[in-house]
Design a protein around this nucleic acid. Structure first.
Lengths: 341, 341
DNA sequence: TACCTTTATGCAAACGTTTTCCTATTTTTG
DNA sequence: CAAAAATAGGAAAACGTTTGCATAAAGGTA
């Protein structure tokens, strides 16, 4: 009667005992080491399969000092842009032979800190992050840089942090929208922006201002808003805007959720879009194509962003020795014009 | 001159050496073991912080034989229902003190198999899964059941598999839609269903048929379709439907993407919705509220599904000994009527 | 035959943490 | 004051895998 294992999980040692060979032989056989005979390899693999052996990656990771795994922290999985990026990252990372752990910070700074530490604790070999809107202090990422673990930021990225950065060209996005609206004859533009703690919102604003400046128009303080970009906030802002005349001839929103909310309010006010009011969103969320009138928006090519971010990460994992050049990759954006303008 | 560590990562042993105590003391001090004096604890914690110590969860997991981590495999992160469930799962799991690894199978069966194995390999203590549409063989989950690792399925679930199951009441969903459309006077209903490999689609169909049967109406073969529920497929099906008269008075779609596509086709045919054609979707995707006419759909309460799934998992992890009773939790659904019907 | 390769395998240490037993000191109690 | 109990900490093994080094057998060469 064979001795019963404590639990049914079988290990390399179990296989070794069953076969009367050493654990090292089993280990090597399982990964086709050249110095193991074909006969032994076959034998080992067969009994491994029979015993339902699965490599314990914790143990392997501990011994090898790497886990073949990279981490990803996103603020919200459910945002269109984010989920599109995630999919691209997952596919790229996987095709390059790594596993991916996806975590959601829920836009909570403390949770982000916790997740960074947890991922470090499980010894991921690299980390991709799109930060919380509230993240202005990036020191929790220091453990990664200090230990030379590759780090890539996308979309919501820090300034002046020694890490690779992949981002849409937010300045260009704001600029293109500004130029476009001017062309369409708009002169009184409202900009509903995200929180300025996030520098991509700063850049979009700068881009917009730059375009207006070229037409010698200044964006008034009273015509820019800076809040969390939720539908509820958008409604409140609209109330304020339409409380007194003159009404603006265009509203540019830094995300599509806001643009949709603005469009709905405009509709409820009986304001014809685009005749009386032009609306432009950002991110090219599928909803902008479905709503009517469909909404002009800025395409950020999330698949491209994800692919580039993942590739940058894996490549710097693979040539660990090469000089760290924390490059910044900027993906051009494109204005998709629709009925709302 | 202190001896330089190979790399800057510091371990419990490093701290022990620095302080002239044993590793065991450090380990205990860090987790507030009662038999360590306050003075020692303070000392240890301070130098741990100073040295930038982070617990190596791989090592801890190996030693403890558990990882405090649970896995989640979803077919597509970007689907509204899925991302809502994920968020609920993440929040619940986290509030119960566990970490979550989210993986995306991309609706690929081989990838699902691979992910299951990878998660087992990293010794997750439980697994939540919503399967691929193509998953009919569930044997890759056997490692989990064989090793008594809790397993919860939601939405895309297997029949007759010894695991906990959380699902919307798909039969009821189909039934409610059927009843409702009959009430509205529809007599020639088309049902665009998902692949029948997924038994939730079987159930929705059964529910619909049951409702029709009560009105002595049978759903003709030629009026039901069963394909992957993409916008492209929906268009093709519409072409077929509207190729020859009589045209149906209602189309029920097993997801909202399809319903939207159908609505757009109807519009392009100049067919008035809801007067000439009523349309009902499934999942209550936010897009159904935005499009006009807004689309009647079935709310599945994803947050509830996620919370229940996570809770079921964690609870069965925590009372590991208790008898396994692979219960099935069914979440009622609700019909949200809108302009399209 | 003696020596050198090549091929195939085993031994044992190491990865970092936790925990079970110990031991030693201090405090309490009768 | 001696014995018991409480307090504080250490030694070492264990988790499962990998790998540098050693070894042994087989084949080849001079």
């Amino acid at each position: 009667m064979t001795k019963m294992a404590k639990s049914s999980v079988s290990t390399i040692v179990d296989i070794a005992n069953a076969l009367g060979v050493s654990p090292s032989t089993v280990s090597r056989a399982l990964k086709d080491h050249p110095y193991i005979s074909q006969a032994t390899k076959d034998k080992v693999k067969k009994t491994a399969a029979k015993m339902g052996y699965r490599r314990n990656t914790l143990a392997a990771g501990l011994r090898n000092r790497h886990s073949n795994t990279v981490g990803l922290i996103v603020p919200r999985i459910s945002m269109y842009f984010q989920s599109a990026v995630i999919t691209a990252i997952q596919n790229t990372v996987h095709s390059m032979g790594f596993n991916l752990i996806i975590c959601q910070s829920n836009d909570s700074y403390p949770l982000e800190v916790e997740l960074v530490n947890a991922l470090y604790g499980s010894r991921v070999e690299g980390l991709i992050t799109s930060c919380t809107i509230h993240t202005t202090d990036f020191s929790h990422f220091n453990i990664f840089t200090e230990n030379q673990i590759p780090l890539v930021f996308y979309d919501r990225v820090p300034r002046n942090f020694p890490a690779q950065i992949v981002r849409g060209d937010d300045f260009q996005g704001g600029y293109k929208v500004g130029k476009y609206l001017l062309e369409k004859g708009c002169r009184d533009i409202v900009y509903i922006n995200g929180l300025l703690t996030c520098n991509l919102y700063q850049d979009r604003l700068s881009g917009l201002k730059a375009a207006l400046r070229e037409a010698r128009i200044t964006l008034k303080k009273s015509r820019t808003f800076s809040h969390e970009l939720t539908a509820a906030n958008a409604e409140k802002i609209c109330e304020k805007i339409f409380a007194k005349e003159p009404w603006p001839d265009a509203i540019f929103c830094a995300n599509d959720t806001t643009a949709i909310s603005v469009l709905q309010t405009a509709r409820s006010l009986g304001l014809h879009v685009p005749r009386k009011l032009k609306i432009v969103g950002y991110s090219n969320d599928p909803r902008t194509q479905i709503i009517s009138p469909s909404i002009t928006s800025v395409e950020q090519f999330p698949a491209e962003v994800g692919t580039r971010a993942a590739r940058a990460l894996i490549e710097s994992i693979q040539r660990k020795n090469a000089p760290r050049k924390p490059a910044e990759i900027t993906i051009p954006v494109e204005l998709i014009t629709r009925e709302s303008s």
